[in-house]
Amino acid sequence: MREWLSWLSVEYADQIEMTLRLCGATIAGMLIGINRDIHNKPIGMRTLGLVGLGSAIVILSGSVYEGLHFGQDAVSRVVQGIMTGLGFLGAGAILRGRDQMQVQGLTTAATVWIAAGLGVTAGLGAWFITIAGTLVTLFLLTYGTRLERRLIRIFGNKPDAGDLED
């Protein structure tokens, strides 16, 4: 059995690595999405998992095709296209309030963008950045509002509770 696993890992090392990158991107997006689901936001675990996965698929297909490795400039253009396109997807989550002065959904739109970024880093195999980025994002989504309120109290400008974004 051990010999078979050893042969499999050597023979299909590239495919195993790509599968791990795709799974890492999906998991990073899903973790961010779980936070959004917990807070009853419109974009959740499945959507952000798919955003991360889609970004990783695009970056992998842009960097490796039929065994041909493209240069860094080609990968850079793929990343730019992903991040631009996801900006438009995220924009769909932004809504203007009735008074036309309050905007809602910016954090949700940002989570779409960050899930894409995490998908790109996982697709590139930048595991430390993927893990650290996921953890920092989860920290910010979990404790950001409390931290923001505390800092506003410390430094002066005290808005109403409803003025802080989601």
Rank of each mutant, 00 (worst) to 15 (best):
L53I: 02
G54E: 00
S55Q: 03
V58P: 00
S61Y: 04
G62W: 02
S63Y: 02
Y65N: 14
E66H: 15
E66L: 14
G67Y: 15
L68V: 08
F70K: 06
D73V: 11
A74G: 07
S76R: 11
S76F: 11
V78S: 07
V78W: 05
V78Y: 06
G81R: 07
I82T: 05
M83A: 08
G85D: 02
L86V: 06
G87V: 00
G87S: 10
F88H: 08
A91L: 08
A91M: 11
A91H: 10
A93S: 01
A93D: 08
A93I: 11
I94A: 12
L95P: 05
L95F: 14
R96E: 14
G97S: 08
G97F: 14
R98I: 11
R98E: 03
Q100F: 11
M101Q: 05
G105E: 07
G105V: 08
L106K: 15
T107W: 06
T107Q: 08
T108N: 06
A109K: 13
A110F: 09
V112Y: 09
V112I: 15
I114F: 04
A116V: 00
G117R: 08
G117C: 02
G119F: 01
T121F: 01
A122M: 13
L124T: 00
A126S: 12
W127H: 03
T130R: 02
T130I: 11
A132P: 02
A132Q: 05
A132N: 07
G133V: 02
T134P: 04
T134W: 07
T134A: 03
L135Y: 02
L135E: 12
V136T: 09
T137Y: 01
T137E: 12
L138C: 01
L138V: 15
F139M: 11
L140I: 13
L140R: 02
T142D: 02
Y143N: 05
G144A: 15
G144C: 15
T145C: 04
T145I: 10
R146D: 13
R146A: 06
L147C: 05
R149H: 03
R150N: 07
I152T: 05
I154H: 03
I154G: 00
I154A: 09
I154D: 02
I154E: 01
F155Q: 02
F155D: 15
G156D: 00
K158W: 13
K158A: 04
K158M: 09
D160S: 07
D160F: 10
